[in-house]
Structure formats: structure tokens, C-alpha cells
């Protein structure tokens, strides 16, 4: 079973994502900000991370940079999942090393197809 870490400061979004991911047969872990996510990745790297952009403590972008610089051996795939839907944001995320990008709001089909594209579903 593949593991997905859902990183979002909104409990509701985490719940919705968890629900969809569980129907896609993922084991789901949650983090409320980038810092928590980093700790979680250090403990055990997930297969894929669903990453919000704007969060307190540590943003998605800061987390992504830290993750890419870290010495976590098996680098998880990173799918940004955010309300930022401008081309400039998308480009910045890809340049920082994101593998895919989901613009909120998302539905099951969107999430499933993006996870297929990064090769985890």
C-alpha cells in the first residue's frame, strides 16, 4: 500500500483529501504545516506528498526546498495542491522541484489523474 502525506493547515481539506485517497487505496498521514511535514518525512518518507502552499510556521515552498536539500534517501513525489492558480505560481513550484500541481478546488478525478501522472496511482 502506498503512503500519502497530506500537508494542509485546513482540517477540512485534509479530511476531504484523506477520504479520496483512502478510496484510492492509500495509507494517509497528515501534517498541519511544513515543519510538521518535514518531521514526518524524516521519521518515514511517504511515496507522495500533497502539499498546500500557504500555511503558518513553514509554507509549502519552504518545505519543498528543505525536502529537496535534505538527505532523505527515497525522495517522495510532491504534488502541490493550492488555491494559487496563476502561471507564475505554477512555474515557481515546478522550478522548486514539484512533480505535479493541483489547483483547488479538486475532485476525485483530478487527484487520481495527477497521482497517475506522477506514477503512484
Amino acid at each position: 500500500m502506498k503512503t500519502c502525506l497530506v500537508v494542509d493547515d485546513s482540517k477540512v481539506i485534509r479530511k476531504v483529501a484523506r477520504h479520496i485517497l483512502e478510496t484510492l487505496d492509500f495509507e494517509v498521514r497528515e501534517a498541519g504545516d511544513g515543519r510538521e511535514a518535514l518531521d514526518s518525512c524524516m521519521a518515514a518518507a511517504p511515496d507522495v506528498i500533497l502539499l498546500d502552499w500557504n500555511m503558518p510556521v513553514m509554507s509549502g515552498m519552504e518545505f519543498l526546498r528543505a525536502l529537496r536539500e535534505s538527505d532523505i534517501a527515497a525522495k517522495p513525489k510532491v504534488v502541490f495542491c493550492t488555491t494559487e492558480n496563476g502561471m507564475a505560481y505554477i512555474r515557481a513550484a515546478i522550478e522548486a522541484g514539484a512533480d505535479e500541481y493541483v489547483m483547488k478546488p479538486f475532485d476525485r478525478e483530478t487527484l487520481e489523474s495527477k497521482l497517475q501522472i506522477v506514477g503512484v496511482a
Partner: peptide, 18 residues
């Protein structure tokens, strides 16, 4: 919704404008 179904972000950036 339509653009995100099946299309990779790289192809979206290459072939579409928002």
C-alpha cells in the same frame, strides 16, 4: 476541472494560457 483531468502540469504550461 477539465484542464486538470489527465493533463500533466508540464503540458498545461507548454500548451495553454490561463
Amino acid at each position: 476541472f477539465e484542464i486538470q483531468r489527465g493533463l500533466s502540469v508540464l503540458r498545461m504550461m507548454r500548451w495553454f494560457e490561463s
